[in-house]
Amino acid sequence: MIGNRRDQQEENHLMVEVSDLELVERTLEGEHQAFEVLVRRWEGPIFSLAYRLSGSDEEARDVCQETFLAAFRHLKSFRREAKFSSWLYRIALNTWRSRQRRQPAESMSLEEETETRGFDPPDTANPPDERLLRDERAQLVRRALAALPAEMRQVIVMKEYEGLKFHEIAEVLGIPVSTVKTRLYTGLTLLRRRLEGLGFSLGKE
């Protein structure tokens, strides 16, 4: 809990200088503040991953929350040979998949979701036409991605949006690098067909 300035300074120090592994050790020793630093450090990427996968910020927030709670509960089972972030990504993917299985009927379609969002701040930097066009293209991409099989969507999201290396994705999913490449290739090819099917003008960029 952030109580006073000294705590804040301590947290800043932890945030910048201490490795994930050391923070894990400290959490296991009972220092809950160390886990809070891990949450601060990784909540952005985990939320981003969940948002790109689900297309809903509400769902992404829930996945994010469940991921960190699960990570805290099972911190003892974290094996030091893997990166903490890989372990966390894996938990997030499992959480997302199990939520998908658990509540397929409750999940909101992308169309409905777009209607209910309505929180986007007005974009003053771009003229309305250009913004509309861009939003429309983004919308098509979201739909095409959402229609991909989960195993390909995961790989594409981790590579394209999270910028993970092939070997990192392989570590997260526990599969060989060659399989990662195959899934990526197949996923991109499928996506291309879907985008073309949705009328996305791939030639004009």
Binding site: H32, E36, V39, R40, E43, G44, F47, S48, Y51, R52, D57, A60, R61, C64, Q65, F68, L69, F72, D120, R134, R137, A138, L140, V141, R142, L145, I156, E160, Y161, Y185, L188, T189, L191, R192, L195, F200, L202, G203, E205
Partner: peptide, 26 residues
């Protein structure tokens, strides 16, 4: 060429949600 255009298309979906500052009470 084809895959590069798909990559460009993917980048047209910019990050349009703000990550929350989670508060976990355990």
């Amino acid at each position: 060429d084809g895959l590069q255009t798909v990559r460009t298309a993917l980048q047209s979906w910019e990050m349009d949600a703000v990550a929350p500052r989670l508060q976990l009470v355990i």
